[in-house]
């Protein structure tokens, strides 16, 4: 059985690997004759936090996976710094799934794994993983087996794990959906702090208050289509479309 320390190839320093802006143009994903993503446009071309809101089934999670290069669009194109996504730069675009998958190892080893795949030399991994855990207030989970942590703990660990390789862009799919108020606050602080370092963050959330607290701009997605991002004030007080207005008033379902 392969020893986990020897098999993965490292890619060396990724300092020169640009991914910004992360850009999706005219994206279409069609399944069984349904357009799940329908000519969607969204670009992380400005610093800060962009919130993506919209009803269940709008296609938000699909759009995140498209932008992360995990699935290929049927039409349109995703580009990172102008070229199609490739594996060598994947660690520069972080993605935290709605239901993150923890590896069967400790919290620390989960973070170290992400660093290893990102090409961080072995000698630095342990210290950087510890730092990352500490920055998220998760030192106490360093030695715990990650898969027996609570759902909320796993979600926080997943965010820390995604932040550790210092991605240029970070895609977050409802990162606080299962969290208690204290953990929610911890995650929001981490998001704000990361955004201040220049990281570009796309945040899917169903929580209007959270969007108002964190987002520099808000994009509305409905039935596979994305409306152009507007400021939080505009979004909540003077929404651009009738659908967005209905959504904010709690009257829109897909």
């Amino acid at each position: 059985m392969p020893d986990d320390g020897t098999v993965l190839t490292t890619t060396g320093s990724l300092a020169g690997a640009e991914v910004l802006p992360v850009c999706g143009r005219d994206l279409v994903v069609a399944r069984d004759g349904r357009r799940l993503v329908d000519s969607a446009n969204l670009a992380l071309d400005q610093p800060g936090v962009t919130a993506l809101m919209g009803p269940n089934g709008a296609g938000k999670s699909l759009l995140l996976r498209l932008l992360a290069g995990l699935i290929a669009p049927d039409q349109g194109a995703v580009t990172w710094a102008g070229t199609v996504p490739d594996r060598m730069r994947a660690s520069r675009v972080g993605l935290v799934f709605h239901r993150p998958v923890m590896l069967r190892r400790t919290g620390l080893a989960n973070v170290a794994f992400a660093l290893k795949v990102a090409g961080i030399p072995r000698a630095q991994r342990h210290d950087r993983a510890l730092e990352a855990l500490a920055s998220g207030g998760l030192e106490h989970l360093a030695a715990s087996p990650a898969r027996v942590l609570s759902g909320g703990e796993q979600q926080r660990l997943a965010l820390v794990r995604a932040l550790a390789p210092e991605p240029q862009a970070l895609l977050l799919d409802e990162p606080t959906a299962n969290l208690d108020p204290v953990s929610t606050l911890a995650i929001e602080e981490l998001i704000v702090r990361s955004a201040k370092t220049g990281m570009r963050i796309l945040l899917v959330t169903h929580d209007p208050a959270q969007a108002q607290r964190l987002a520099d701009r808000i994009a509305f997605m409905h039935a596979g289509q994305v409306e152009a991002p507007v400021s939080a004030d505009t979004f909540f007080n003077d929404p651009a479309s009738a659908r967005a207005r209905a959504f904010i008033a709690g009257r829109l379902v897909l």
Partner: peptide
């Protein structure tokens, strides 16, 4: 998808 999101080959 989780592993590919890390950039694994």
């Amino acid at each position: 998808e989780q592993l590919r999101a890390f950039g694994i080959g």
